[in-house]
């Protein structure tokens, strides 16, 4: 390892390590150049006044961005509960011994996973037109929870089914050998373990649901039912300025980033206990 004259074969050019080092320097240099260009070419004053105008940031808060954030949370939470209940039911149907239940569950899951969520929301917005006089209770929560929950249950069903199937077969055998009927074994032994397994992917579904709740504005709820996106869009139109949307965007991150960290922690915990 001392000098190059020790090596019997003369190699041409740089060693692989030297080449990698040079490549890294080039990448740094490109990055610095791009940043310098951005700093000198961009109109920072205009960017600041369009995206981050201080008085609009302030008025976004006084106009009720926190109320809209609360609405987003309420819509998401209700839809998550419906999605969890519906998803569990669909997962059990998909694992049923009775063929038609399996077919119905498969059809439902494939249908609503294959559709863009926004199509479902447009359909819900047209329901009152198609069926005059039809109302869904707890306006606006009922219709929002139903629309979001229908889509969420299709996604969650597959996750929960995988979780149920990940519980070792020996668990059911042990429960049945103690005299537990199949339903009792499912409730007391399998489902508690399945939910522990699917906690990380369900947290990821919750993040998706937070974002999908932005589609609520397609249903056409009244202004006091606005969640973050509807609220932000409305206000941005009023001000002819993007600042409210930027504030609303940050509000989403305030919810989704901690949930993402939580999901990764749960994943790490699951990996440890296996």
């Amino acid at each position: 390892m001392s000098t190059s004259t020790d090596t019997p074969v003369e190699r041409k050019g740089l060693s692989p390590r030297r080449r990698a080092q040079r490549s890294r320097w080039i990448q740094y240099a490109v990055l610095v150049v791009l940043i310098l260009v951005a700093v000198f070419v961009a109109n920072w004053h205009q960017i600041g006044s369009v995206f981050f105008k201080p008085e609009f940031i302030k008025s976004t808060f006084t106009d009720g961005v926190l109320k809209a954030l609360l609405k987003t949370l309420e819509y998401t939470a209700g839809a998550f509960v419906i999605g969890l209940a519906g998803g569990t039911l669909l997962a059990l149907m998909k694992l049923s011994q009775v063929g038609p239940y399996r077919w119905i569950a498969t059809a439902y899951i494939e249908f609503f996973r294959g559709l863009p969520a926004i199509v479902v929301f447009i359909a819900f917005s047209l329901l009152p037109l198609a069926f005059p006089g039809m109302t869904i209770p707890w306006d606006p929560y009922g219709v929002v929870w139903l629309a979001l929950g229908i889509v969420a249950s299709a996604y969650m069903a597959e996750v929960i089914r995988a979780g149920i199937q990940a519980v070792p077969k020996g668990q059911v055998e042990a429960a049945r050998s103690l005299g537990m009927p199949a339903g009792l074994a499912m409730r007391k032994i399998v489902l508690p373990q399945a939910f522990r397994i699917v906690l990380p992917p369900l947290t990821n579904d919750l993040i998706l649901l937070v974002k999908d709740s932005s589609l609520v504005f397609m249903i056409g709820v009244a202004a006091d039912g606005y969640e973050l996106t509807g609220f932000g869009r409305d206000l941005a139109n009023t001000y002819s300025n993007l600042t409210p949307i930027v504030v609303c965007g940050f509000c989403y991150l305030v919810i989704t980033l901690p949930l993402g960290i939580l999901a990764r922690r749960l994943e790490a915990r699951t990996a440890r206990t296996r």
Binding site: P168, G170, Q171, E173, A174, A175, S177, I189, P192, Q193
Partner: peptide, 12 residues
């Protein structure tokens, strides 16, 4: 009563 090779205790 049944005792299994892999114990099959309920881990939760």
């Amino acid at each position: 009563g049944m005792v299994f090779q892999q114990f099959n205790l309920f881990p939760h």
